[in-house]
Amino acid sequence: MTLATKGTRRIVVDGAEYRWRVSRRHWCCDYEGATLGYAVQDARHPATTLVVDTGRPTARTPAAVPAQVVMPREVAAGIRRARANGWTPRTAGPPFRLRLSAL
C-alpha cells in the first residue's frame, strides 16, 4: 500500500524524510472508525507503511469535542517509537501497526 502524494505532509525525523497523512479508513484503526489514526511512509523509498492508531476519538464520535488533531510532533514521536519497535520503512512488507494509548 502506497500513500498518494496528494494530501500528505512532509516531515523530517532524525535526518530521514517521510510523508504522512491522517487516515479515516478502516484499515488504519478500529473497525468502527471511532479512533483517530495516521499513516507514514519513507518519502524517497516507500516500502512498508506505518499505521498508527492514536487511541483518541475522531471528530465523528460524540466524545471528540472539540475535534482531535494530529500534530507533527506526535507523528515524529510515533515514527521514533515505531523505529525502536522494529519498523524498517525501506524494507518491503505488510503495514507495520502501532497502537498508542489515548492521552
Rank of each mutant, 00 (worst) to 15 (best):
A16G: 00
A16K: 13
A16E: 14
E17S: 15
E17I: 03
Y18I: 08
R19G: 03
R19F: 02
R19A: 00
W20A: 03
W20S: 10
W20R: 08
R21F: 02
R21A: 15
V22W: 05
V22P: 07
S23G: 14
S23Q: 04
S23I: 06
S23M: 06
R24D: 13
R24S: 13
R24Y: 13
R25S: 14
H26E: 10
W27I: 11
C28E: 00
C28Q: 09
C28W: 02
C29F: 04
E32Y: 14
E32A: 13
E32C: 00
E32N: 06
E32R: 11
E32S: 08
G33C: 04
G33V: 02
A34H: 04
A34G: 14
T35C: 00
T35Y: 07
L36E: 07
L36A: 04
G37R: 00
G37T: 01
G37Q: 00
G37P: 03
Y38V: 02
A39F: 01
V40C: 04
V40S: 03
V40N: 00
Q41E: 15
Q41I: 09
A43V: 05
A43K: 07
A43W: 10
R44L: 06
R44M: 02
R44P: 05
R44T: 11
R44F: 05
H45M: 03
H45A: 14
P46N: 11
P46L: 09
P46V: 08
P46D: 11
A47N: 12
A47I: 02
T48M: 13
T49N: 01
L50C: 03
L50E: 04
V51L: 15
V52P: 08
V52N: 07
V52K: 08
T54W: 11
T54D: 03
G55Y: 00
R56F: 03
R56K: 13
T58W: 07
A59E: 08
A59K: 14
R60G: 12
R60E: 03
R60W: 15
R60K: 12
R60I: 03
R60A: 10
P62C: 05
A63N: 06
V65Y: 14
P66N: 10
P66F: 13
P66G: 02
A67L: 11
A67K: 14
Q68G: 04
Q68E: 14
Q68N: 14
V69D: 10
V69M: 01
V69S: 10
V70Y: 01
V70H: 01
V70M: 05
V70L: 07
V70W: 02
M71C: 12
P72S: 06
P72R: 00
P72M: 01
R73S: 05
V75Y: 10
V75I: 04
A76P: 05
A76C: 06
A76R: 09
A77G: 11
A77D: 15
A77R: 12
G78P: 03
I79M: 07
I79P: 05
I79G: 12
I79E: 07
R80I: 10
R80F: 05
R80A: 06
R81A: 14
R81G: 04
R81H: 08
R83E: 14
R83P: 01
R83Q: 13
R83N: 08
R83G: 10
A84Y: 05
N85P: 00
N85T: 05
N85G: 09
N85H: 08
W87F: 08
W87L: 15
W87R: 02
W87K: 00
W87S: 03
T88V: 15
T88N: 12
P89G: 03
P89T: 01
R90H: 08
T91E: 15
T91V: 15
